[in-house]
Nucleic acid binder design. Structure first.
Lengths: 128, 128
DNA sequence: GGTATCCTACTACGATTGTCGGAGGTCGTC
DNA sequence: GACGACCTCCGACAATCGTAGTAGGATACC
């Protein structure tokens, strides 16, 4: 129960991403954004998702205007961290190593990412 | 539809993990394993999950014995890769970098992992 | 001031998930 | 040959998820 972040369903995440992108905004704006991205959904579907997100406390709404304004309460990084933690717990008893190695081995990184990574990793001390 | 790996539900993954750990085995053995881990579930629950895993093609069964023997068809790494890919797609438009950096920054790695990582990362060429 | 438009609130419904119970077969043992 | 231990098969049921329709109020424009 503690980790409510985990209860984010797929379609809800889609909406939350729109909120991250757009900033505090209305159902209508999120709907437009999704339509631009090629995602066809009904107005009320988005509305339902946003209400569920609020019930789950991932967003808050300001109801002073006719069209309620919703705002994300959790950051993208926070959600990522939570998801990664779940993944680590589920698959590797909480160890981060296998995931990191898997990613570095199998995925393409941009030059900037490589540089940042080299710097970060260079600072690590295997110790003993 | 292509990526059937994504349709692995949480409780199903628990069972799949048991199969990875135990090798090809029966419902009873998986049940015992879960009980040892402190997970209290009924025999038929595990059975249902294993059948669903088979329907989703994550495992195959040999029905020649009275107690059917189930075997994982996908590896832990394969599932991890798929999950990571989903995470990347959902949260960072498919980019691996943010995940790697997030992990290296926030998670503890063992000395061995650090060494492996340094070696891997040292070989990367930011090039351009 | 009627009509189209937009918004919220509520309800709904099929699919998936997590969890089991019961029916009915087989097998070993007393 | 009845009893208990196991097994599979089938059905079920509540919760969550994805998706959306409808009712009814506000707004705005002609």
């Amino acid at each position: 129960m503690a980790d409510r972040l985990q209860e984010l369903a797929g379609a809800e995440l889609e909406v939350l991403k729109a909120l991250w992108h757009l900033g505090p905004t209305t159902v209508r704006e999120v709907l437009n954004h999704l339509h631009e991205r090629g995602k066809k959904v009904a107005y009320t579907t988005v509305q339902t998702l946003m209400i569920r997100l609020e019930q789950k406390r991932f967003v808050v709404s300001d109801k002073s205007d006719v069209a309620h304004v919703f705002r994300a309460r959790v950051s993208r990084d926070r959600v990522t961290r939570s998801r990664l933690k779940t993944l680590m717990a589920q698959l590797y008893d909480g160890a981060a190593g296998p995931l990191v190695l898997q990613l570095v081995r199998n995925e393409r990184l941009t030059p900037e990412e490589i540089e940042q990574l080299q710097e970060l990793v260079g600072d690590l001390d295997p110790g003993e």
